[in-house]
Simulated assay, not measured.
Amino acid sequence: MLRKALNTSLTLVMISTGAIAGVTVTAGSAQAASNCGQPITGLPLDQGSQGTSVERLQIRVAGFVTSGEVLSTDGVYGTRTKEAVRKFQKQYGLQADGIAGSDTVNKIYSLQDSDCTPIHFSYAEWNKCNSTWAGGAVSATAAKANARKSMWKLEALRAKLGGGAVQISSGFRSNSCNAAVGGVTGSRHTYGDAADMPGSQSRRCDVHRAAKSSGFTEVLGQGFPGHNDHTHVGMTSSRQWHGCQG
């Protein structure tokens, strides 16, 4: 309530002085408060909580894990979810108690757009192949859902690297798009959960290392055949980490 009161007071002051910037403050506050139609309710959520709200929370903190860990999005608030929430809170300067209260959820809301993707990534950037998301290894609905989950992991990765831009050169591919660019059969790109990121060698290797603690099981980079100009992340049933050693 204090934050809301301060934002309201600031807007009123700027309007009274005729500053157009007051409109910007109002719009920014509204966007930050958006739950994108998928509210996280029943707060506070803590160990033992279950349900849709826990699953929505898990998707958004799944990039805050230990190296090699993959957080389940099963709707059950266990010890691993609590630890992921704690790491999320620590990253963003909140009280790191592992309990998802209003401060934690409001921070999540401030990091997402109206379509539930994180603010620094988009469906349009992820899918430059087929706007219908069809023709891949899974249904269009599943591919889009997989993409959104991976975007949230990359949002965590981006924060861990200091907030610098992370560019996506290739995300979802239909089977035909994948074949056209020479992708391997069964590529995770056709499932929607993979992304390629270009950049300088040092930056690519920073991304490579951070991806290992951001919930990705497939991390391929510098030194791995075909990956000397980008870092690839995706989800596989077994760990596949190659390149950028050290």
Rank of each mutant, 00 (worst) to 15 (best):
M1R: 12
L2W: 13
A5Q: 14
T8N: 14
T8Y: 10
T8A: 08
A19Q: 15
T24A: 06
T26G: 12
T26Q: 13
A27V: 08
A27W: 08
G28V: 13
S29F: 15
N35I: 07
L43G: 02
Q50K: 10
T52V: 11
T52G: 04
E55K: 14
E55C: 03
Q58V: 12
I59E: 08
I59D: 06
V61C: 01
A62Y: 10
F64S: 05
T66M: 10
T66G: 15
S67L: 09
V70I: 14
T73I: 08
V76Y: 12
T79L: 09
T81W: 10
K82C: 01
K87F: 11
Y92I: 08
G93P: 14
A100E: 11
N106A: 03
K107I: 06
Y109H: 15
D113M: 07
S114C: 04
C116Y: 13
P118Y: 05
S122M: 05
E125T: 05
E125D: 13
K128R: 14
C129R: 02
C129S: 05
C129D: 14
S131T: 14
G135E: 05
A137W: 08
A140E: 09
A140Y: 12
A142R: 14
K144P: 02
A147R: 10
A147E: 06
R148G: 01
K153Q: 15
R158Y: 01
A159Y: 14
A159M: 13
L161G: 02
G162M: 09
S169N: 10
F172W: 11
S174H: 05
N175T: 00
A180F: 01
Y191T: 07
Y191M: 00
G192M: 02
M197T: 07
G199V: 05
S202G: 08
R204F: 02
V207P: 06
H208M: 04
R209S: 10
A211P: 13
K212G: 00
T217M: 04
E218K: 13
E218G: 00
V219C: 01
L220I: 15
G221W: 08
F224D: 14
F224K: 13
D229E: 03
H230I: 08
T231I: 00
S238E: 07
R239H: 09
R239P: 09
Q240C: 03
C244E: 01
